[in-house]
Write a protein that binds this DNA or RNA. Structure first.
Length: 430
RNA sequence: GAGGGCGUAGCUCAGUCGGUAGAGCAUCGGCCUUUUAAGCCGUUGGUCCUGGGUUCGAGUCCCAGCGCCCUCACCA
């Protein structure tokens, strides 16, 4: 009955058996027998050993603190049904020590990141989740409505444009663990709501962001998980820093086999390959950069298993990024990939209001969603003068997946979104 | 959204060729009196995901729906 307490009790000096709070043995056992598995009890007594040598608690005072009305899952197998583990996470946590350990690790990873940023002089801020204009990423938003203001609002797809407003205001090193919402498909790597760390450093650039990325992720592997080599599925990923910096165009040439400026050949190749796959993009109707981006995603990304910085993206794909000073076809942006998955995204931030106004106005053909939704107030903010800055975003859920070896994002979310079960539908309609 | 797999007791799972719904653990009742999931004996427990169909007869076969998982697409 009190196994849990005994497990967690700190062993002290052994006590002699035989001390009892109960008038007689019969009433003691009667009380003990009324306790069910799952009840929470408080007990005091001496830690000791039984005659067979097992650690035990010789109880002198005993009280029922909470009654369990439902039987817990079987002790040996625990709760293994995936759907039940997600829907009834409290039962999963109760029954499976591994599940509790995982969320403890997640908390430690986040603590670790905060400690890195605190050491570097960043302050944590909170910016709006409800936004009148959504931006900072290319995704479909959730739409909602405020009754009193009678206005349409969006759940943020990114905190970027607000964090940069903080830079304008002189908060020179800011970060936010931003819950973001994207009205897109659900997959083992995508949940409609997810947590993104975004940070901005005035007078920094994307090279500084690479250093911070290495410190955050490489350091979390080393200090929280305890190793810079971590298994993920069949693979082992090596987080030892520094990580390679590879130019986008070079990787494109290496894995697609075509020079990035050979647009005619790329379009021909894209037409062949996308026709056979179930890809919605029609290369004939898309801008060059969109076709190149799609080819990169399908032919390069999955090769990037160990942490790799992909640097210098085609400029049209980067409406919020500074152009390369010597070659304006490219932007000072990197994405960091691990296990073929995008884990982070960073720029030397565009701070020229005129260029920002232009990139907001330019609509790329072939993209379902655009990063470039005109935000006049943001442009006005830039007109006050935003310091040159490096900005970085890291997908916290995905980072937790990789560091803890979980292949589904739902495993690292306490309460992943599930469709309403039939009983829930009945209740909410009734 | 498309394709594939799965759904049986509170939990973990069997269920043959279509022929009375099963086990272990949990519950409950005894016995025992200190266990590293599980002491012994006994007992209870079912919308076989839902709804149709085929059949003398469906957990099993067929159709539709719901939910979960995987792959693909949008996306990070």
């Amino acid at each position: 009955m009190s196994k849990k307490m005994i497990d967690e009790a700190t062993a002290s000096e052994p006590a002699a058996p035989g001390e009892s709070p109960f008038p007689d043995a019969a009433s003691a056992w009667q009380t003990a027998k009324s306790i069910d598995l799952g009840d929470i009890v408080g007990a005091e007594g001496r830690v000791g050993r039984t005659k067979t040598g097992e650690l035990t608690l010789w109880v002198t005072r005993f009280r029922l603190l909470s009654k369990s009305l439902r039987p817990p899952p079987e002790k040996w197998h625990g709760l293994t049904d995936v759907e039940q583990r997600y829907r009834k996470r409290y039962v999963d946590l109760l029954a499976n020590a591994e599940s509790r350990r995982l969320f403890l690790l997640r908390a430690r990873i986040i603590d670790y990141i905060r400690s890195v940023l605190r050491r570097r002089g960043f302050i944590e801020v909170e910016t709006p989740v409800l936004q009148p204009i959504y931006g900072g990423a290319a995704a479909r938003p959730f739409t909602t409505h405020h009754n009193t203001l009678d206005t349409q609002l969006y759940l943020r797809i990114s905190p970027e444009l607000y964090l940069k407003r903080c830079l304008v205001g002189g908060l020179e090193r800011v970060y936010e663990f931003a819950r973001c919402f994207r009205n897109e498909g659900i997959s083992p790597r995508h949940n409609p709501e997810f947590t993104m760390l975004e940070l901005y450093q005035a007078y920094g650039d994307y090279h500084d962001m690479m250093e911070i990325t290495e410190e955050i992720i490489g350091g979390a592997a080393r200090d929280v998980i305890g190793s810079t080599k971590i298994k993920f599925g069949e693979r082992e990923i090596d987080y030892t820093t520094p990580w390679p910096r590879r130019r986008y165009a070079d990787l494109f040439l290496e894995y697609v086999g075509l020079a990035i400026d050979d647009v005619a050949a790329i379009r021909e190749r894209a037409a062949q390959h996308f026709a056979r796959k179930q890809i919605t993009l029609d290369p004939a109707k898309a801008d060059d950069a969109v076709v190149i981006g799609a080819m990169f995603e399908h032919y390069v990304e999955h090769h990037l298993v160990n942490p790799t910085f992909v640097i210098d993206y085609p400029a049209p794909l980067c409406p919020l990024t500074k152009r390369h000073p010597t070659d304006p076809r490219f932007a000072l942006r990197f994405e960091v990939y691990m296990n073929g998955m995008e884990m982070g995204n960073a720029y030397s931030e565009l701070n020229d209001p005129k260029i920002q106004h232009e990139t907001f106005s330019a609509q790329l053909r072939g993209e379902d969603d655009t990063m470039a939704v005109m935000d006049d107030d943001f442009v006005e903010a830039l007109e006050y003068g935003m310091p040159p800055a490096g900005g970085l975003g890291i997908g916290i859920d995905r980072l937790c997946m990789l560091l803890t070896g979980n292949e589904s994002i739902r495993e690292v979310l306490l309460f992943p979104l599930q469709r309403q079960s039939p009983s829930e539908v009945q209740e909410s309609n009734g």
